[in-house]
Design a protein around this nucleic acid. Structure first.
Lengths: 204, 204
DNA sequence: TTTGAAGTGGAAGTCGAATTCCGCTTCCGG
DNA sequence: CCGGAAGCGGAATTCGACTTCCACTTCAAA
């Protein structure tokens, strides 16, 4: 489970590791706080993008900054944790697409769904457009699954054959940037799906 | 002339305005330095995006930061000046498009040309995707001319009728973000042109 | 050539955000 | 109910940009 990196003892600190046993579970209230922080952070990023200040997040979570730093050594680390969760969700979405019988439909649904999600979450947008921003690369699993969706669509002639996963991800990055400017995600998604379709046969 | 805001006396400082006359032209070497700074800044932004530091720019221009600040009171101001020049160039491009007889072709050319320019200049990319970044709104002139290009294309049925200039600008923002990730501008441009085409008639 | 206004470099100051520190509070096993 | 380890808040510190300042050059008009 990627999501709850329960930091009982942040780094192998226990002296005499032969006595280590279980790292002693986090205290109840502490765990609760950690969760609150994560939620607050997610909400904050979703609303205001990546430039929210640690203090804002702390306030929103109803804790002091100290507590933030107890759980995440760095702002980067906090963001990384959120990114992890986002990625997990993305994988779920892709998997749903993979379960749909019609590849073309699946591809379309996936794009629309992604666009919609982006429109509701500035943090997610940053994640996509900001691969350049050094946030984090997409995890291999996600890339692999996405490739499957593309491959299936390609096989049915639903999309051009010269679009690699990397290209597609760059395109999603573009999509997120566009959505960040105007929330017309439906238009953009449609545009993208059409634009990716195999070059228009000249109507024989 | 927008581009050379010759700052002889930055703010109306001359006492006895009745004697003001010409604000006394900038000293030769100073003008040369100003130009160098502008060039260096443009190059720096083009290479490294908007996060270059003032000191970098100064070094690249071969001057001290002091000189930067003599010419531009603020980093923002420097960026704004560059943005102005970029905008002027953009207007020229749009005008070229407007001179082309075939509206559909003109639109396509404009998109491709824009994509190509973006690919060569990270600064330009930031300008487009970063309207969100608060850099500056597009000047009315540019918007108006762009609207013309769109209108003409729309009239010939080359693009969907439900895309406003604002939408189109957001789309260009997206394009720039995509290009910032992979330099495949040709693919992206093609995709965009196709995607914007009026909904595929089902081949009558 | 002289002279002083204009221009220069870059060390020092400022400022906002991230991160650390530590005395006080809260859990929870015995 | 107690003791003390685990957590907590938030003031104080650090850090990394941007911006200011000023003694020192350089230009160019007379």
């Amino acid at each position: 489970m990627t999501t709850t990196a329960q930091p009982g003892s942040p780094e192998g600190k226990t002296l005499r590791p032969e006595l280590a046993g279980a790292p002693r579970p986090m205290r109840g209230d502490a765990a609760r706080n950690r969760a609150r922080v994560l939620d607050a952070a997610r909400a904050a990023f979703a609303e205001d993008g990546a430039e929210v200040q640690m203090e804002q997040i702390a306030k929103r979570a109803g804790v002091g900054v100290g507590t933030l730093y107890r759980n995440f050594p760095t702002k980067q680390a906090l963001i990384a944790e959120l990114a992890d969760r986002w990625m997990d969700e993305r994988v779920e979405i892709v998997d749903q697409a993979l379960e749909m019988p019609d590849p073309a439909e699946a591809f379309g649904w996936f794009v629309r769904r992604t666009a919609e999600d982006m429109a509701g979450d500035a943090g997610l947008c940053h994640l996509f457009s900001g691969v350049s921003g050094g946030t984090c690369p997409f995890p291999d699993l996600l890339v692999a699954r996405t490739e499957e969706v593309l491959a299936r669509a390609r096989a049915v002639g639903a999309i051009r054959s010269d679009v690699s996963v990397a290209d597609f991800q760059a395109i999603l990055g573009g999509l997120s940037a566009a959505i960040a400017q105007t929330e017309k995600w439906e238009l953009f998604a449609e545009m993208l799906i059409t634009g990716l379709r195999a070059p228009a046969q000249p109507c024989p």
